[in-house]
Computed example of a mutant assay.
Amino acid sequence: MSPLSTVAKLKASSAFLVASHQDSRCDSWWLATKDAILAGMPSAHDEAETHLNVRVLRTLKKNALNELWNRGLQVRPFVIACLTLLAKSPVVFLEILEPHWPDRKAYRGGQAAVNRIRAEKAAAALSAASTQDEAASR
Rank of each mutant, 00 (worst) to 15 (best):
T33P: 01
K34M: 04
L38W: 08
M41W: 10
M41L: 15
S43H: 05
D46P: 00
E47K: 07
E47Y: 06
T50F: 05
T50M: 12
T50H: 12
L52M: 11
N53E: 10
N53P: 00
R55D: 02
V56K: 08
R58C: 02
T59I: 09
L60R: 05
K62N: 06
N63Y: 04
L68M: 06
W69L: 07
N70G: 06
R71V: 01
Q74S: 13
V75K: 11
P77L: 09
P77I: 11
F78Y: 11
I80H: 09
I80W: 03
A81P: 01
A81S: 10
A81R: 06
A81H: 05
L83C: 12
L83V: 04
T84F: 08
T84R: 14
L86D: 03
A87L: 03
S89Q: 15
S89F: 13
V91P: 00
V91K: 15
F93L: 10
F93K: 02
I96D: 06
I96Q: 10
E98D: 11
P102S: 03
P102R: 04
P102K: 03
D103R: 14
D103K: 13
R104D: 15
K105W: 08
R108C: 02
G109V: 02
G110H: 15
G110C: 14
Q111C: 01
Q111R: 05
A112F: 04
A113K: 02
V114L: 07
N115P: 00
N115V: 09
N115Y: 02
R118K: 15
R118G: 01
A119D: 05
A119E: 08
E120L: 13
L126S: 13
L126I: 03
L126G: 07
L126Q: 13
S127M: 09
S127Y: 10
S130V: 09
T131D: 14
Q132E: 15
